[in-house]
Structures are given as structure tokens and as C-alpha cells.
């Protein structure tokens, strides 16, 4: 196992924000930690990269205890933190070279790696520029490049694609896939459920410091919300009637604003979506986002 967490707990003062979670990540796997804001994802990641001590429980990375062997562990990690912390006193390429220096990578090798990473994140032209002149997405890309400078065995990515344009986002996911093929293990958080569904072998959905479900995203979706979904916006007047009708027919659903999300997979009674008077109706494949909303939505659960 690359990561093994047992009863992992983190308290800030008296507030418990990670509540005794258990999970493991196997070699070569891509593991996604999903969850609403404040769920405890970043806190968990920070414990994995030895930046934050555990309150209780055990956590091993590469079968080493994070508290005692942090140097050995960190030497083999690549980290993309949620908050940008590029070095504003250095240029783009100097940021990579200095990071390589922290890892003790020889100068010529560092230069070679830095140049190819800049090419990968398409920042070659910005090489000599100051950090303050980069756009938000460019900073994000540079941080990703920085996290790869030591050719890590385990990559820890805290919302790596937040703020990236669609093309850059796709490039990042593609690069992740190719790193994975070469045996890199990846742990990531993201709020893009579609990406998580495509990239992750397994996901854990966290809320309020606990893991609610864990498993292969496609199987989780199929098992919990089924394969299809109706998005339906009824005429306002039919609201109360609709809730009643759906419960009668045993159709699982949740509401978000004016929209109903119906999952007819496990319906027990006779019904059709078309029978309901509606403004808008969309029939589509059920996704991880549906599962996510169903499990973590605060106002919408039935």
C-alpha cells in the first residue's frame, strides 16, 4: 500500500475536522477525495504530505510513519497545494530550479527537467517573467510543474485544475493519465465531478470529516443512483402534487432550487416522466455529480 490511514483524526483546538477516517491507496492507483467545502479534504491531504501532525490514528505513506520519516516520504512526493505559494521573489524558471534545489537535484539535471516541464505546462515563453505577471491559471500550471520536478512516486493534488481554462484542464488530466501509466500513484481532490469520474479509479466522498462512501465511481453511481436521470422543472403549481406522486411510485429524487432530479432505476410503481406537467425535461445518464449531490446535499435530501 502506498497510503494507509487508520482512524485518522485531526482536531483544531477542540473542533474535530477529520473524524477517524480509514482508507488506503494502492500503488499506481488514482484516488479522489471529494466533498463539499469544509469537508476536511485539504486537512487530510496536509497530513499525508507531512505538513500537519495527526491528532490521533495512524498514517503511513510508502509504509513509513508520517511523523517519524517525513524527510524520506517528502523526498518522493509531489505536492500541488490548494493555495498558490509560488516564490514571488523568483522568476518562473527560478521557481522550478529553486524547488529542485530543495530536493537536492543537481543543477544541470534540474535545468533539463525545468525546461521540459515548462514546455508541458506551456509556459516556455514566460520562463524569465516574474510570478506577479502570470494569470491565475498560469500560476496553477506552474505549481503543477513544480510538483513534478522531483519525479514523484506519489502525487498529491489539491484542486489542481481550479482556475484552468478547459484546454489547460484537459492537458492536465491527460498528463496525469500518462504519469499513471508510468506507475505514479495519485491522490487528488477536485470539485469537477465529471473529471473525477473519468480520472479516478476510486473515490471517497467526504462530508463533515467522515468518509460517506468509497469505491469505483462508475460502480458507486450505478449502485446508488442508478444509470439514468431525469432533470425536470415542473410548473410551480404542481410542486406538492409531484412530491406525492413520486413517493407513491417509489422514484428516488432530490431537488435543487426549482429542478427535480429523478432516478427511475429503482422505481416500484407505474409512472412516466412525460406525464408530469413540466417546463423543461432532460433525460440523461446518471453521473457522479448526482451521487455527490444526493449524499452531501443539505437542503435536498429525501
Amino acid at each position: 500500500m502506498i497510503i494507509c490511514a487508520t482512524n485518522l483524526t485531526k482536531k483544531f483546538g477542540s473542533v474535530e475536522v477529520v473524524k477517524g477516517i480509514n482508507f488506503h491507496v494502492a500503488s499506481g492507483e488514482c484516488f479522489g477525495i471529494l466533498g463539499p467545502n469544509g469537508a476536511g479534504k485539504t486537512t487530510t491531504m496536509r497530513m499525508i504530505y507531512c505538513a500537519s501532525p495527526l491528532t490521533s490514528g495512524t498514517l503511513t505513506v510508502f509504509d513509513l510513519d508520517v511523523q517519524r520519516h517525513f524527510r524520506t516520504i517528502k523526498a518522493r512526493l509531489g505536492v500541488v497545494p490548494q493555495d498558490n505559494n509560488l516564490d514571488d521573489d523568483l522568476t518562473v524558471i527560478e521557481n522550478l530550479l529553486m524547488y529542485a534545489e530543495y530536493f537536492g537535484i543537481a543543477k544541470s539535471e534540474a535545468l533539463h527537467r525545468a525546461e521540459s516541464l515548462l514546455e508541458f505546462v506551456q509556459l516556455q515563453e514566460k520562463s524569465r517573467d516574474r510570478i506577479s505577471t502570470l494569470s491565475g491559471g498560469m500560476k496553477r500550471r506552474l505549481i503543477l510543474a513544480r510538483g513534478l520536478i522531483n519525479r514523484p512516486h506519489l502525487l498529491i493534488l489539491d484542486e489542481p485544475t481550479t482556475g484552468l481554462d478547459p484546454e489547460a484542464r484537459h492537458l492536465v488530466w491527460q498528463k496525469l493519465r500518462s504519469l499513471k501509466e508510468n506507475g505514479t500513484t495519485v491522490v487528488l481532490t477536485t470539485h469537477y465531478m465529471e473529471d473525477a469520474e473519468q480520472v479516478c479509479d476510486r473515490v471517497a466522498i467526504m462530508d463533515l470529516g467522515t468518509i460517506i462512501v468509497e469505491g469505483n465511481p462508475v460502480e458507486l453511481v450505478r449502485g446508488i443512483v442508478g444509470t439514468e436521470c431525469y432533470e425536470l422543472e415542473p410548473f410551480p403549481a404542481t410542486d406538492g402534487f409531484l412530491d406525492h406522486r413520486l413517493r407513491d411510485a417509489g422514484v428516488p429524487f432530490h431537488k435543487l432550487g426549482a429542478t427535480y432530479y429523478l432516478f427511475p432505476g429503482s422505481a416500484t410503481g407505474e409512472w412516466t416522466a412525460e406525464e408530469i406537467p413540466h417546463r423543461r425535461l432532460l433525460h440523461r445518464r446518471a453521473t457522479l455529480e448526482d451521487l455527490f449531490l444526493k449524499l452531501t446535499g443539505k437542503e435536498l435530501n429525501q
Binding site: 505538513a51 517528502k74 523526498a75 497545494p81
Partner: peptide
């Protein structure tokens, strides 16, 4: 913060 994500303590 950036430094302590590397082997530095």
C-alpha cells in the same frame, strides 16, 4: 509553506 512540502523541515 512551500518549503516544507519538500524534504526540508
Amino acid at each position: 509553506e512551500a518549503m516544507i512540502a519538500t524534504p526540508l523541515s
